[in-house]
Amino acid sequence: MTDKRVDLTTDLMGLTLKNPVMTASGTCGSGIELLPYMDVSKLGAIVGKGTTLNNKVGNPPGRLMQTPGGLLNCIGLQNQGADYFLTEILPEVRKVDTHFFANISGNTVEEYGILAEKLDVDGISGLEVNISCPNVKSGGLAFGTVPEDARSVTEEVKKRTGKPVLVKLSPNVTDITAIAQAVEEGGADGISLINTLLGMSIDIETMKASLSNTFGGLSGPAVKPVGLRMVYQVYQKVKIPIVGLGGIMNAEDAIEYLLAGATAIQLGTANLVNPAVGIEVIKGIEEYMERKNIRNMQALVGKAHG
């Protein structure tokens, strides 16, 4: 072993990550599922599958459709609820020596609060709040599309937990910076962006939508330019750290996000294609920094801004 010439250690909201590479919610289970393919403890952090207060069966089959450079999905947040997560999954998660973020979704502001409190336990480093869900009490518009709603959820979660809180923004809005500023005002410790872009596909043989839910979230390389643009814009408007995601397939993509202003990045769809991609991205960032003679991660963040 040669001396480590570069340091990938990343400070995220007061947490020390081994490196800036995280796995995105819904693409890595609880991290345990990836153990046959790589040493999961080498990752900066894992973000668990979306957890709701109660069991959710999810949408009927017809949950996936591949598109050029992308993947549409409408899983429908299938999960067994927070209590199951705490008793059955978390003990396994604790055995993996890296940071774990619980990703939470609710139908009301109160539900987010209850979830935040339930998950304020050892073994969970922080929360990631998915605000792409419909607010059932105000006509079903997603919390993440209305700045006031996004702020209310953030405030409620912050009130009920002592852990760092990332708020994951939906890209399906006119002005992403308005939402980002609202959650920052609400007390968010950091922002993850982007969640999936709403899309659809039609089967011309059956003449019907390919997905059981008609619409689904688009992920994969096709969305990367959009995610990158949003990270770049938000970086100019907020002071809290940004976790960038959206179509990152390799180290080069990850580096683009860091340069756009992301403090850390998440791998999503890439895990579905190559479950060991995390290790490859860490190595690729390390090699890039060596080649560019950059010693610390922090020097990369936001470097694309003048």
Binding site: T27, C28, P60, L64, N73, I75, Q78, L272, P275
Partner: peptide
């Protein structure tokens, strides 16, 4: 048979009732 993405149990895309 069902349309599949990851094949390793993480995406929950390929479900059967």
């Amino acid at each position: 048979e069902e349309y599949m993405a990851c094949g390793i149990g993480v995406c929950l895309g390929c479900v059967q009732k």
